[in-house]
Design a binder for these strands. Sequence first.
DNA 1: CCGTACATTGTTACCGATAACAGTACGAAA
DNA 2: TTTCGTACTGTTATCGGTAACAATGTACGG
Lengths: 349, 349
Amino acid sequence: MPGTRGADQGDSTVARRSATIYDIARAADVSHQSVSRYMRGLDMRRSTKEKIEKALETLSYRPNLTARALITGRSHRIGALTHEVNQYGPGLIIQGATSAAREAGYLLDVIALDMGDTNDLNQALSQLLQYDLDGILAFASTDSVKAVFEQTDFGVPALVAAEEEDYQVETSFDRPGVGQLVSHLVGLGHERLLHIGGPETYSAARNRLRAFEAALAHFGLKPAGVAHGDWSARSAYQAVMALPIGSVPTAIVAANDQMALGAIHALGQRGLRVPEDVSVTGVDDTPEAAYFTPALTTIRLDFKEQGKNALVALLNEIGDGGEHPSFLPAPTLVLRDSTGPRSTGATNP
Amino acid sequence: MPGTRGADQGDSTVARRSATIYDIARAADVSHQSVSRYMRGLDMRRSTKEKIEKALETLSYRPNLTARALITGRSHRIGALTHEVNQYGPGLIIQGATSAAREAGYLLDVIALDMGDTNDLNQALSQLLQYDLDGILAFASTDSVKAVFEQTDFGVPALVAAEEEDYQVETSFDRPGVGQLVSHLVGLGHERLLHIGGPETYSAARNRLRAFEAALAHFGLKPAGVAHGDWSARSAYQAVMALPIGSVPTAIVAANDQMALGAIHALGQRGLRVPEDVSVTGVDDTPEAAYFTPALTTIRLDFKEQGKNALVALLNEIGDGGEHPSFLPAPTLVLRDSTGPRSTGATNP
DNA sequence: CCGTACATTGTTACCGATAACAGTACGAAA
DNA sequence: TTTCGTACTGTTATCGGTAACAATGTACGG
């Protein structure tokens, strides 16, 4: 017979384990089912409702979502695979996603991956799957992640968060994003642009590169070069330092702000001034970008919204879709001091 | 009679829901309890073991942690309250914590708080508590969080992650940390040091401030001033721009690298050179700090380890303490180009 | 060859909720 | 007053595991 447990719990301070619907039911002298119905807001006689409410006041009940999850098959948890949370973008995406999840009554189970390690990825996934989640979200949009997500049937909705550029590449050159940067630079007279991209395995990196090339092509130009960094300032620094003398372009389009910073630093060490000799642009508009020396021209992305969007999209697939995925706000060009007219003829160390 | 469900699931591709121990038991012709024992690695006859293993190969079983959690009261999940994940430190702490959790067979439920909003905090907590967690960890070490954690009995172990400086303040001036920066600067001849701190509600900010003052006092000096920023480059920029003419110190000790960047930028706008006129230091050693102009002198903290440590400490309280909390590696001084001998007498805009 | 100790396996109860269905109370119609 | 439909309420089954105990099998000593 149910409802015969947890009778005494000492008269000390706080209930060790909070009451169950059976405790409430006993205290209110109704069936546990009525309590369950009350909690779910179903119709019931006023008198019953009042009995339950009185009991609730006394006992401090808190629903046990584990038990509910077991029977309903809905855990109200979403697994999130991410990486490099220390970076500005990914961090904000997570933040946006967790708060959106929270609003919808979900919780985000975050696993930070050691990127590039496929073993790690698989292990993480199989661990995640044990916790019957309602859905799985990957914010790490790399080839290996995408491959795994396409091949595997997780038994629950799973999706890889889309990059903001994914649906822009094909469209025209002056679309928000890297294209805007390029046309800004071309408008300043630059013709020899170098791109410092992220790792080729990242779709964001590829998208930005393609947008760069597409925009240049529109102006009848070709890239003055493409270097591949790893999103870090250090990698861009090294790439710029490695540029052969005489082949330094008049403008550098880095795939994120950190790499732009590294590029600026390297240019400085090579005796080149920004923007007088070389213009430099970033992507992201981190809060620091405005305080670089010189302040960085870049494009601003709304990462929080991106995270929220991915979550809402997943929620819709789960079937708990209250909201419709909002449109991502368009990236906006932020003009600052790191770009200027093409140098008229400085020497080129 | 148990074990009579999930018989047919279509002959299509993948099992909609993975098999349960009852399915395995039926296939192996043993009791479900034997399967449970097998999964937990208990002793059993070889023949039984083999039967189960054969069944497992056929059916692709995956334990349901929800069901296990319901009976054992162990969810193997830990709630994590955090904030400003977009910043370098907090992000890395989360990363360290999630991977440590993963190794121990736990999952981290992350909630990113809108700091300073106590309502938000309480709401987040009460939501967290529904998901019977094994423990709760707060990485946001602010007054309001601490207060809530001290007052509330969550029914499970809960702790606020310690700041690296917490156990250093009382000790001597040349302890790793801000003290090291101060003695470095004093060693260069500086006597008028300004501190740009974080928000006073953050214990990390207070600790750094106290360390700053204590170190100065050791040399018989007093702060040339203390400004309070909000960890952002912008806030430090404004603080430095607001300094009355003539009161600009010869060295600025910012409480993190971002604020150091903002300070450098402001100094540049006021026509002061770093480090010739003013030395500037940060705290954190973000990957970008080396590529500031000038490269930033700062102290390096191991945030990942900090996150891991907090998690291990909590695990110990939970009683699942395999490891002992390792000692945090001492912060190390990183000397770069933003500090130099006290200026011998430039004018002071 | 039998009884007992011990190792292994099977049965039933339980965790705390919801689902499905049975049972009761009440008001309206006959 | 009786009957019936409707609206609640109560009872039992269920989710997928583990716990506790009962039952069986095996090994060994007498």
